[in-house]
Simulated assay, not measured.
Amino acid sequence: MGSGKSERVSAEVKGHATHVGESRVVEWGARAGYVASGIVHLLIAWIAFSLALGKRSGEADQSGAFRALASHPAGKVLMVAMVVGLVLLAVWQITEAVRAPEWKQKAKPLGKFVAYLILAAPALSLLTSHQTNSGSQTQQTTRTVLSMPGGKLLVVAAGLLVLGVGVYHVYKGWKRKFLQDLVENPGRPAETLGMVGYIAKGVALVVAGGLLGWAGLTGDTGQARGLDGAFKAVLAVSFGRVLVVAMAVGFVCFAAYCGVRARFGRV
């Protein structure tokens, strides 16, 4: 009896998730969310280029991107539209998680749900007049976690998680697994954009995850600075400027691929 009622509730929840996920508002909002993600990555690339040229143009991460956008007259209007798109894209991901038949199939959309909300968070902070600095926030969060019992293990685990996501991005780009997210093959140029973009973003995440894990091992919270810290760490090595320029080009490719996914993505 209890099992039957549970199955009916589960079916009803999945039915509601299907209705929401297939609605025009969520579909077009999700596509707008991919465009918004592309704009953020394009701005990160521009800031990274500036860093490579020795100019200080802000943080090479999502908060720096939104801050650069907010400095323009129409920037905040565009930010509102981007936040709406990213939130609806997150909503679509959660409906995908609910509809997935097995728990292991729910993990990917749940992870993306969190990722798109994190991407939108700096814009929400700026729009509500709260200044945001991803690097400082990451450092503060890391410092707080390190002060907790078992904090070092938690920070190291978080670093390994980010590093793992980065490795997966590289794999997804190299093996062209991103094509599975599309309803049809958009052609060789778009494939190349996706491949280069995913690999470049993956490398940046691997560096960021490594720095976060190292911060956990050593207690040096100055190492935990997210994407901005990753770009600056690469900049500090031999031929760092060339490497950062290459990574920035990769982020431009990823931004362009986001536009392709907005058109051809499975939504």
Rank of each mutant, 00 (worst) to 15 (best):
V35N: 04
V35L: 15
V35H: 04
V35E: 10
G38A: 10
G38K: 00
V40S: 02
H41F: 14
H41Q: 10
L42V: 09
L43A: 14
L43N: 04
I44M: 13
I44A: 08
I44E: 12
W46I: 11
I47C: 09
I47L: 05
A48K: 00
L51V: 03
A52C: 07
L53F: 13
L53T: 06
L53I: 03
L53D: 15
G54K: 03
G54P: 09
R56F: 05
S57F: 06
S57R: 13
G58T: 02
E59L: 09
E59H: 06
D61H: 02
S63N: 08
S63T: 09
G64Y: 01
G64A: 06
A65E: 00
A65K: 02
A65M: 06
F66C: 11
F66H: 07
L69H: 03
H72T: 09
H72P: 02
P73T: 08
K76D: 09
K76M: 04
V77A: 15
M79L: 08
V80Y: 01
V83N: 02
L89I: 09
L89M: 13
V91H: 02
W92R: 13
Q93A: 12
I94K: 04
T95W: 03
E96A: 15
A97E: 09
V98L: 15
A100W: 04
P101A: 14
E102C: 00
E102N: 07
W103D: 12
W103A: 14
K104F: 02
K104C: 00
K104D: 13
K106L: 08
K108P: 06
L110I: 15
G111C: 12
G111W: 02
K112N: 12
K112D: 11
F113G: 05
F113E: 06
Y116S: 05
L117M: 13
L119D: 01
L119I: 12
A120V: 03
A121V: 10
L126N: 08
L126M: 09
